[in-house]
């Protein structure tokens, strides 16, 4: 075990990636982001959760000071009708990252205490059944973003409309 840890640590340091270092033996949160939204309304946070712990785990709750209620949700698209529903937990199995993304699983930030503006970051505490609590900083993207910064995700518009000022055409 000690040897394993040492090897992992050495590789991470060599690669000079703080993310990899932090990820060792843990639940790793990759590319978190949230949507800009108005105070009193709702937003959603997305991310990919990778389980490096060697045992299956699940995200059981989340909290942030910027929302009065935080819930874990999924979407069901049925015949063109979008239905959003709470889920009890989001499974994070070893070798099977949980992907939270628009139109699917998300951490729903309900009744925001203030405006969330593109460019800022918000703290989000994630509670895992086995791995315990992790607090991360989540970058806020434009209201119309489809992915984390720098990812167009196939729609080709990225986050050009976040501020509502001045059309780009």
């Amino acid at each position: 075990m000690i040897t394993r840890r040492f090897v992992f640590g050495a590789v991470a340091v060599l690669a000079l990636t703080p993310l990899a270092l932090a990820a060792q033996d843990k639940v790793e949160i990759v590319e978190p982001w949230a949507r800009a939204a108005l105070a009193g309304r709702n937003s959603a946070a997305y991310m990919t959760i990778v389980n490096h712990t060697g045992e299956k785990d699940e995200l059981i709750s989340a909290a942030t000071p910027v929302a009065r209620v935080v819930e874990l949700h999924t979407h069901m698209m049925e015949g063109g009708v979008m239905r959003m529903r709470p889920v009890q937990a989001i499974e994070v199995n070893v070798g099977e990252p949980a992907v939270l993304r628009p139109g699917g699983l998300h951490v729903m930030l309900i009744n925001l205490t203030r405006d969330l503006k593109a460019g800022e970051t918000i703290p989000l505490t994630l509670r895992f059944r086995n791995a315990g609590e992790r607090t991360i900083e989540v970058p806020v993207q434009a209201a119309g973003a489809m992915g984390p910064a720098g990812h167009g995700h196939g729609h080709g518009h990225g986050h050009g409309h976040g501020h509502g000022h001045g059309p780009r055409n």
Binding site: R35, G144, G156, H157
Partner: peptide
């Protein structure tokens, strides 16, 4: 609707991008 956190922003952003 404006309390829609996910699907409406996505679709409205698509409309905006198409107009651009």
């Amino acid at each position: 609707f404006t309390y829609c956190p996910d699907v409406c922003p996505t679709e409205l952003a698509k409309m905006a991008a198409a107009l651009d």
